[in-house]
Simulated scan of single mutants.
Amino acid sequence: MKIGVLSDSHDHLDNIKKVIDIFLQQKVEKIIHCGDIVAPFVVRVMGELEGKDIEAIGVYGNNDGERRGLIKILGEIMKIKGDFHEVRWNDKKIAIYHGTDKRLLDSVIQSQNYDLVLCGHTHQVRIEQQGKTVILNPGETCGYLFGKATCAIVDLAIEPFDTKSIEIINIP
């Protein structure tokens, strides 16, 4: 099972559309947004997922101020699951947290309760493994801070599941 992961899109509609197109081309089955979507009008490009058989979920980031609006407008397209969420897909336990509080993020990682921890916030790509836990920050979809927009695809079916199961994609 392939999942598409993005974070820190900060209303960059062109890049969000590019990411959605990449994920559709790569035939991902799930999409996770690790926070800092920012405004509800991203539905203009996220709407491309409507009618597709792709589950999309997200968590809040520190810049997601219009929380009710995001839930209302994105509706069925992307389910916003709060500040922290966990799922189990393909026998992998996955934690999703924006990463605003580094101490909390480190605690989630150090707990070794998860096969995969997905985060954002720093706008920098991070792929590493600590014990059994693989950590992924897909970098910034917006490209605002570092000038390099990225997203990631994780293949949960690759065994053994490790950092080689992750592909970082540069957004053109």
Rank of each mutant, 00 (worst) to 15 (best):
I16S: 04
C142A: 13
I77Q: 07
V38A: 07
T122S: 15
G69C: 01
V154N: 01
Y60H: 12
Q110A: 15
K102D: 15
K79R: 12
C119I: 09
G47M: 02
S165M: 04
L6Q: 11
N15A: 15
D21F: 14
V42N: 10
D11M: 12
E159L: 13
V5T: 11
P172W: 06
H10N: 09
E140R: 04
K18L: 11
I171E: 00
I168Q: 01
G4D: 03
V45E: 08
V125N: 02
E29H: 05
C34F: 06
S111T: 01
I57Y: 00
M78C: 08
N113D: 13
L70N: 00
C151F: 06
Q26R: 15
I22Q: 09
Q110T: 11
E159I: 12
L70R: 00
Y114F: 07
L74C: 14
V19R: 08
K132F: 00
Y97T: 08
D91S: 09
E48M: 04
G61M: 07
L70K: 01
D36R: 09
K92T: 11
I22N: 10
L13A: 01
K148I: 11
E48Q: 10
L136I: 01
E140N: 08
V45W: 04
K132E: 12
L156I: 10
M78K: 02
Q112D: 06
I37R: 02
G58L: 00
E48L: 03
N137R: 05
F41L: 12
I31E: 04
P40H: 05
K72I: 06
Q130P: 03
N63I: 15
K52C: 00
L118N: 03
D83A: 08
S111G: 06
I80W: 06
N90S: 13
D14F: 13
I127P: 10
D101H: 13
K2P: 12
F84H: 09
E48C: 00
R44F: 12
E48A: 01
N90F: 06
R88P: 04
V45P: 02
N90W: 02
E66F: 13
K164F: 15
I127Q: 07
N90C: 04
K2E: 02
V154G: 03
P172M: 05
E29R: 09
E66Y: 12
V28P: 04
N137V: 06
I31G: 03
L13R: 00
V87W: 02
E50H: 08
I54R: 02
N113P: 12
L13K: 03
I168S: 00
K27I: 04
V38D: 01
D101T: 15
H12A: 14
K2T: 03
D21S: 15
K30A: 00
P138Q: 05
Y144A: 11
K72Q: 07
R67E: 11
K30T: 00
G147P: 13
V45S: 04
D162P: 10
N113M: 12
S9Q: 09
L104F: 14
D162M: 05
D101K: 15
K92H: 10
K93V: 11
K17A: 09
N62E: 09
V5R: 05
L49Y: 06
N113T: 07
V43I: 15
V59A: 01
D36S: 09
E76L: 05
Q26I: 01
V59N: 02
P172Y: 05
T150V: 10
Q129I: 01
S107N: 13
R67N: 11
